[in-house]
Amino acid sequence: MSTTDILTRMETDAAENGYYLCPDKELLDDLIDGLSTNEERYGYGSCPCRVAVGSKTYDGDIICPCEYRDADVDEFGMCFCALFVSKEMMDDPSRMSSIPERRPPEVQKAAMEYDGAMEESKIPMHQLKDDIISVKDRKNSIPVWRCEVCGYLCAREYPPPICPICKAKAERFQQFSFG
């Protein structure tokens, strides 16, 4: 996929989710180039600022937009790479700077072990796969939010800035509980 196509895709994704693309033009270009390189190298757009191992199972959580984006934009006003930023950050880009890594270390470690194992055939793959699934299952006390306008549901720490389906504002979301 060309860099123009990737940029368009990310622009659309940002608009749908109430985010903005990086206001620092040089950084934005570098990130889009990085995504394009990764897409060519691994067959999918793995996060340009994280180490990938080339397996969709192990890199799945860091395929852009990654699983950590929403929580990072909520907390820091931008994702780890700064490709996606909040409205507030867009209005005052001087606040932009590196944020801490949210990807759990045990997830990255399992991926790196898989990478090493592939090289030396040390560990059977199904065994590693079970490991990573249990690691991922552990972080499961995230609240669920419901868009009062269209019924869209999402699990994240705070409601999204806008509903990706009907564009209702964050205020229209209510915390949802089952049963």
Partner: peptide, 10 residues
């Protein structure tokens, strides 16, 4: 660094 990473380039 990573060759693809924006902050690394900065």
């Amino acid at each position: 660094t990573l060759s693809t990473c924006g902050w690394c380039k900065k």
